[in-house]
Design a binder for these strands. Sequence first.
DNA 1: CTATTTGTTGGTGGATCACTCAAGAAAGGA
DNA 2: TCCTTTCTTGAGTGATCCACCAACAAATAG
Lengths: 208, 208
Amino acid sequence: MVGMSETPAPAKRGRPRTFDRAEALTAATRLFWERGYEGTSIGELTEALGIRPGSLYAAFGDKKSLFKEVVECYGRSPVGAFMGVALEEEPTAYGAFARILREAAVIYPDPSHPAGCLTISAATNVTPQDSEVAAFLRTLRNGNLPTFEARLRRAQQAGELPADADPKALAAYFAAVIQGLSQRAQDGATAAELTRTAELALAAWPAA
Amino acid sequence: MVGMSETPAPAKRGRPRTFDRAEALTAATRLFWERGYEGTSIGELTEALGIRPGSLYAAFGDKKSLFKEVVECYGRSPVGAFMGVALEEEPTAYGAFARILREAAVIYPDPSHPAGCLTISAATNVTPQDSEVAAFLRTLRNGNLPTFEARLRRAQQAGELPADADPKALAAYFAAVIQGLSQRAQDGATAAELTRTAELALAAWPAA
DNA sequence: CTATTTGTTGGTGGATCACTCAAGAAAGGA
DNA sequence: TCCTTTCTTGAGTGATCCACCAACAAATAG
């Protein structure tokens, strides 16, 4: 393994950054997560990150850019990616959705991070002038639907799901339940309570 | 029917109000409903109501008071009260919850008013300084849970619900589904789609 | 009529908002 | 060593926010 080095030796010029960019992104994520986009001010961000506004704007651009980067980072984190992982790893569609609901019931109320799903929490209450952010998050949330539907359709073709089942309707149902779990977690529901909710929700799975 | 008159003839002194208070409240409701509490400014309210800030403060007090009155008014409106009506009018618990879900699926995406439920929409993205409003709305949402549970427990004692069913868990499940329906309506789901979601959700009702 | 009560008008104060800029500081390259 | 590049700092931009007056207008009561 010679040749091109792993880190392409950027040979950075200029004054190095005094704060950890990834660490700052994590702190910003936590703030946006619990307060939403509009509810988080630049002042609160600079205070939490321990830097001045100039440094923040130099490192992340404006508020919208920072928020989009936060959402991307969230999507790559375990909390934000557990659905995709379950859909990939579980051999059956039922197994995948059961795992998604059960994991959501435990992850969403986990006190080690703000309650619920970031893309659901930070979405609402955006004024028309920030409709760009609202549309961005709505697209992200609605993006789950075709993914769910495709998995269910595949299960139907494989004979796992009865022929009279409606993959699109099932996908919409699970999306609604997941958003409901997130909301309930924000309202203080416990993992135990949400797990019971998840089990009940799974009872809607079409019988063979 | 003599005696005390229906309107107690207030014999109002002073300059009469030039705008309709109930009408103004309706307009304010619509604004808060689609923009949330923080996202609605006094300026937007005065512009929509066609009055000046002084009149608004004289008639409703400060922003918080106006918002609370809006929520109370919403709770008395058909859109805000349909759950209570269904619980009262339907003879069976299943009939009540089926009606609640089916009506929510049609009411929430109705284009004649902002999408979703006001208490769910206007709740998020409140900064800590307005935690009073957030707590007020959360209490309102969580208030549905004991009501649901009581109705289910009564059904269980009446033999409508199997003895091994869990009224508390079922109540939490329906609350989560309802919040999910509201969210999906805000994301653009149609009444037809939400109705299919509601039907699937009803499949979780415990078999006898 | 006068006095009283109440709504309306136009404006202000203090705070906060997202954001910017000039100057200083810390690194590498020559 | 000096230059270039990049980041940090601290002050400050105009705009907007909510909250709240004081003065004026319009009604009733006596």
